[in-house]
Design a protein around this nucleic acid. Structure first.
Lengths: 165, 165
DNA sequence: CCGTATCCATTCCGATACTG
DNA sequence: CAGTATCGGAATGGATACGG
């Protein structure tokens, strides 16, 4: 049986699963928001196989989240740039980030979460900045790689020997 | 090869993919936020196969997003209730909702997006309410099923005959 | 009503080798 | 560098039948 497709669904949530509902797309967008533009940059930083990176990039381009632009340096290759639509996802990433930060980590030590965003453009390279209680709206913040973290694995409690997922 | 697991990753985004990175979990949470509590309610509204619903529910429980509570009515069965952690996801859903609303739809006709949330508890059954420009913070809004929508399929433009995904 | 068990097709993902 | 081709294993998802 074919996998159920949500492209015709009326619910935006379901719709968006078609776009970012897979394993890698969101992470690619994250990397793009952090300034990555080249195939090899995505490939190295994510450690994803090249073939699926190809497919994912192609899908994101098809959905208008990324677009291919001529390389900024002299190379003959293309680069992948976020469209406006793609940049709009940064709020989603922010929300997810904050949720996971609060729920999936045992916060150990100092936490680095947010960094200011230069108006309209994301700065790069990104400097870490300590959380200081300043309330930053989702419009003027950016997310950066987390420095260190203790891991509170949820201990999926596979009682009665059932595998999860 | 085993699928790469992000459980040990330091990035919260990657981490959260372990929890909600699959096809159904987010939709289950959405339904839960809309008031669904019973196995059959999820099953009917989502149209998901029962076996994978079982696995997904079990995973969400294991991750502390849902918890099993005795049924509110007289039945002997359990119900699935959102934990605080699970309710925290509603901001993520909101963000995703709004993004998809703006980018994945050709907005035709009147749009129904948000409805007030009774303090702390989500009302149910949900009444649709027209968007009126009032700026509601993500803390006091709820999302409801969309009424109708025109579909702007992104026309994945599978040029050179390559299949996407 | 609430699952569980089984079967099967499809899809996803990673590794590797290869091309221009 | 930026992919493409191919392979195999794993996970996903659907249908159905079954049991408490």
């Amino acid at each position: 049986m074919k996998r159920k497709c949500f492209a015709g669904e009326s619910c935006p949530i379901a719709r968006s699963l078609d776009v970012i509902g897979d394993w890698w797309s969101l992470l690619i967008v994250r990397e793009a928001l952090l300034g990555k533009r080249r195939f090899s940059e995505f490939q190295k930083s994510l450690g994803v196989a090249k073939n699926i990176l190809t497919v994912r990039l192609r899908k994101l381009v098809a959905y208008g989240i990324l677009e291919m632009v001529p390389a900024t340096d002299g190379s003959t290759y293309q680069e992948y740039a976020l469209t406006e639509k793609g940049r709009g996802l940064h709020i989603v990433l922010m929300a997810l980030w904050q949720w996971a930060e609060g729920c999936l980590f045992e916060s150990g030590g100092q936490e680095f979460v947010l960094v200011d965003r230069k108006d309209g453009e994301f700065v790069r390279p990104l400097a870490l900045q300590a959380k200081d209680g300043r309330s930053l709206g989702p419009g003027d913040v950016n997310f950066v790689p987390r420095q260190k973290s203790e891991c509170r694995q949820p201990e999926p409690s596979t009682k009665n020997g059932k595998k999860l997922r």
